[in-house]
């Protein structure tokens, strides 16, 4: 009689990569609904395009690399990458922009570096930054909230806009679009309009950030907290990103409120919330020690602020994440926890 002799441990917990990825997607659902409520069908269309492209590229790369296709294709990681990328692309952006970004994320940023677990950069952010640098105009045409519902911009109309670039008679993309709050403050400051003046002159500002954006931020925050509760992500990175962004913004805000936006505005604007809970926490490219995660998160928070306030782009999360990705191995090396029985230093 032959007995099986596997090595210990003989039991395993029920967490799997697929389950983690599914939970990340679940946590994004409230934010997706909120986003669609304020900005129309665009995100869902972009997400669908991105997911289909990403799965196709994943399949292709797994075939080329002679990896077990079904096994990796169903781990869910590529879907998360695609959905996060879709969040960063304007709602009425042409379809090929999304396809390009998703393909770059999966083929170059993920598979050319060795696939799942080996990519030094966050694939979604790599795809986003490539689009932002290559097509800055297309990537900065955002919509004001509710404009599409006011105009009765239905799903077929949105599809027409995304795939054919055709808009209802009398409208152009430029006419529909409006600057985001971050962008607006930045451009107005450059022509010496104070923040208070900008806010009172434009109706897009809500309580903290922009109307709509702050609500999406709320839902992302709740989804993120649920992920922490479910132990899919640890609290260190989101707390460090938001905490450092808030602190730095507070210091400058207290110094000069006319030229520096409030800390709450920074936290609830742009991709700060999404970046803190869903992008910077991508485990593969982030720092992995508890202390390292905090350092890594602080780095992202500060860099985001620096790029937003003094850089050339209205938002800085994408660049900040990629820059800190570069530093992650070094951070890990210098933040090893003390091991049991070793001297406290």
């Amino acid at each position: 009689m032959k007995l099986n002799t596997p090595a210990s441990p003989h039991v395993h917990g029920d967490t799997t990569v697929r389950k983690m990825m599914l939970r990340v997607l679940l946590a994004l659902i409230p934010a997706i609904i909120a986003y669609s409520w304020f900005f129309g069908w665009g995100l869902l269309i972009n997400a669908t395009i991105a997911v289909v492209t990403a799965l196709g590229c994943e399949y292709l790369m797994l075939k080329l690399r002679e990896r077990p296709v079904n096994f990796f294709l169903t781990d869910g990681s590529v879907v998360v990458t695609a959905v996060l990328l879709a969040f960063c692309i304007p709602p009425l952006a042409p379809w090929w922009l999304t396809v390009l970004g998703a393909a770059f994320a999966v083929i170059v940023a993920k598979h050319l570096y060795g696939g799942l677990g080996y990519n030094p950069f966050n694939p979604a952010m790599a795809g986003y930054v490539v689009l932002l640098i290559s097509f800055p105009r297309d990537m900065s045409i955002w919509l004001p909230p509710f404009i599409l519902s006011e105009l009765d911009f239905s799903l077929p109309a949105t599809l027409n806009a995304v795939f054919l670039g055709v808009f209802p008679t009398g409208y152009t993309l430029d006419a529909l679009s409006a600057a985001t709050p971050l962008d607006l403050i930045k451009t107005q400051l450059s022509i010496d309009v104070t923040i208070a003046e900008t806010k009172s002159a434009h109706a897009i500002f809500g309580d903290f950030g922009g109307i709509g954006w702050e609500w999406i931020g709320n839902w992302i925050f709740l989804g993120g907290v649920w992920l922490i509760y479910k132990k899919v992500i640890s609290w260190h990175i989101p707390a460090a990103v938001l905490g450092s962004l808030f602190t730095v913004a507070l210091i400058f805000y207290l110094k000069d409120a006319d030229h520096y936006a409030s800390p709450m505005f920074h936290v609830f604007s742009g991709a700060a919330m999404l970046g803190a809970f869903f992008i910077a926490t991508d485990p593969v490219s982030a720092a992995t020690t508890p202390m390292g995660r905090i350092v890594y998160g602080i780095g992202i928070g500060i860099l985001t602020y620096v790029i937003r306030v003094w850089g050339g782009y209205p938002d800085g999360i994408g660049f900040a994440v990629l820059l800190m990705n570069l530093a992650a191995p070094t951070i890990d090396y210098y933040t090893q926890p003390r091991v049991y029985g070793h001297k406290r230093s």
Binding site: V11, H12, G13, D75, G117, P283, V284
Partner: peptide, 14 residues
């Protein structure tokens, strides 16, 4: 609930 026969790469989740 034992380990599956295949393992995915480490995703450094910590």
């Amino acid at each position: 609930p034992s380990r599956s026969n295949f393992s995915l790469p480490c995703i450094r989740c910590g």
